[in-house]
Write a protein that binds this DNA or RNA. Structure first.
Lengths: 132, 132
DNA sequence: CAGCATCCTTTGGGATACTG
DNA sequence: CAGTATCCCAAAGGATGCTG
């Protein structure tokens, strides 16, 4: 992660702590990790491939996301002392509560997508006519 | 907003459209705007002060957030043709559905904050002992 | 008052190379 | 395999100045 990164990140913890947790679970990769782990546990690379089927995630961001979620107590990390290394990630009971709400919100946006698209079309059309 | 900004933003619309909507409603300022408008409508500066009681938001970011949410059909903008200008922002029925879920998630993180703090303490303690 | 445009700093995040 | 460290670019976001 790097020392300067860790410092900057510690600084942000000062403000409104629960806002930060919200940002963790709704972050770009946090959403996808929680959603995947809601169904079953994954190994690191396996999880990366699973998520990558929709959105490519760099190894760095996946590691960072998993660490954040683990520290918050949403994800459990089980590193087996074998060669080659094997690490399994699973969701905790606390993480499950968060993941279910996030998934519900994600599903809602999917269901309401038509309404959103219509609203956008109306908005864009209105702007088009005034700017021309 | 600027032309280059608008282009970059249009580019991101290509991928997984509902993921983008999710990012809009869970964005740093989107959450706060929706939460505030859930209770009542606000004028621009009034909304800025209300949000600023917790987190300072720049005028630029507030305007940008409101535009995004308006375009998605979550927020209604009512600009009255008077001098000095007066613009009222309110939530739409669609926006209310989103806002309620976001607020529920925000409340959950608040309620579960103790568990998170404990998990963090345990995580940090474990790292402390191995690194020393 | 309610913005928009511009400049500038900070952060997010990808590519690459390296290690146990 | 499962990471860590480093470098670097792109995007987010704040400060300031200007306008109807």
């Amino acid at each position: 992660m790097g020392v300067s990164e860790r410092e900057a990140w510690a600084k942000r913890e000062a403000m409104c702590p629960h806002r930060l947790v919200l940002e963790h679970v709704t972050s770009r990769w946090g959403v996808l990790v929680l959603d995947a782990l809601l169904d079953r546990s994954y190994r690191f690379s396996e999880l990366r491939r699973q998520i990558g089927r929709v959105n490519k995630v760099s190894e760095k961001m996946l590691a960072q996301t998993l660490q954040t979620l683990e520290r918050d107590g949403f994800v459990h990390r089980d590193a087996k002392p074998v060669i080659p290394p094997r690490v399994d990630y699973s969701i905790t009971p606390l993480g499950r509560e968060a993941a279910e709400q996030v998934r519900a919100l994600a599903r809602w946006t999917d269901v309401r997508m038509d309404d959103v698209e219509r609203a956008r079309a109306a908005y864009d059309a209105a702007r088009e006519s005034t700017s021309l």
